[in-house]
Design a protein around this nucleic acid. Structure first.
Lengths: 162, 162
DNA sequence: GCCGTTTACTTGACGTTTCAAGTACACGCT
DNA sequence: AGCGTGTACTTGAAACGTCAAGTAAACGGC
């Protein structure tokens, strides 16, 4: 075993703040959406992804990847959304194993109704807080981070070497 | 009501990536800690905060603020940590209402044992993925975001104007 | 065409977090 | 001192997520 490279004082400071953002930003998004739209930030993402597709429908696995959630999590969530009449499940035509989630008219209406409030919140908490330059930097940084982040489901190839 | 300012295409792109990081980075931290230390990233933070205090103890409310969690969340967690013998609760001497969480020797030992792996993960996923310049930018950006983020518990003064 | 394997998704049990009450102490006014 | 209000924390129930197992259809070799 080799000796640990600890974080420098500056790094620790940066990391602490990053952690705080990682905690508080999703919480703030959830709070607004829960209050105004009876939705989780994750649930909103699912509806939004569906609405942007021709046919307003997606294979479950595709959808899970788009919103960075596990298949199981999505399955449970879609079950709940189905219960509220916002999404409907159909068996996939081309592949009988799979399901397709379809955004219903009611679901679309609900999304349309809640979108302005959510976008306003994202603007207020993120884009209004940063300069144009910082937004560009954030784009670069998140891109670099994503390149290293293991995708859920774990790709068989290029698995992390222990 | 006023018309919504939607996100530009670039903003949307940046936001999507940010959301992905917000989802995947905590998940990756949890995965490593769960596997190697039987701890949540949140639980690790609590132990770490305690270890950095003289007396290795903190008032519950203080601790909750430090790790950006609700009092209830912390109370449940400390209950579990107590069950494993890593933390002990004492009644506060100066104010009989409150509790003080104290890191036990076993808790400290466990933290020391799991720290290297966790730090290595943070390095691998964050600091090694970014240039020194980007790390500095990340510090600025998270600082700017934190300034706008509502702290949990919601401060009575300066509440968010609707 | 059959059979073992893989893929796509669902399900149920369990752990964690949140939300809303509940409890117990402290503070300030009279 | 006594009482109302606020504060610090705990608790229990419900919502949500994860993990492991289960089901069903597709694929691929023979």
């Amino acid at each position: 075993m080799e000796s640990t490279r600890w974080l420098s004082e500056d790094e620790q400071e940066t990391w602490l703040r990053t952690l705080a953002v990682l905690t508080l930003l999703p919480a703030a998004l959830d709070t607004q959406l829960q209050r105004d739209a009876d939705l989780t930030h994750f649930g909103y993402g699912v509806l939004a992804m569906l609405s942007e597709t021709p046919g307003r429908s997606r294979r479950m696995s595709e959808l899970a990847a788009l919103v960075n959630g596990s298949q199981s999590r999505l399955s449970h969530l879609v079950g709940r959304l189905e219960g509220r009449g916002w999404v409907r499940r159909e068996r996939a035509g081309d592949d009988g194993r799979g399901s397709v989630a379809v955004l219903t008219d009611a679901g679309h209406a609900h999304l349309v109704a809640s979108a302005p409030g959510h976008v306003a919140q994202v603007r207020a908490l993120v884009f209004d807080a940063l300069t144009a330059e910082q937004v560009a930097q954030l784009g670069e940084i998140t891109g670099a981070l994503l390149a290293r982040l293991p995708l859920p489901g774990g790709c068989p190839d290029r698995a992390e070497p222990r």
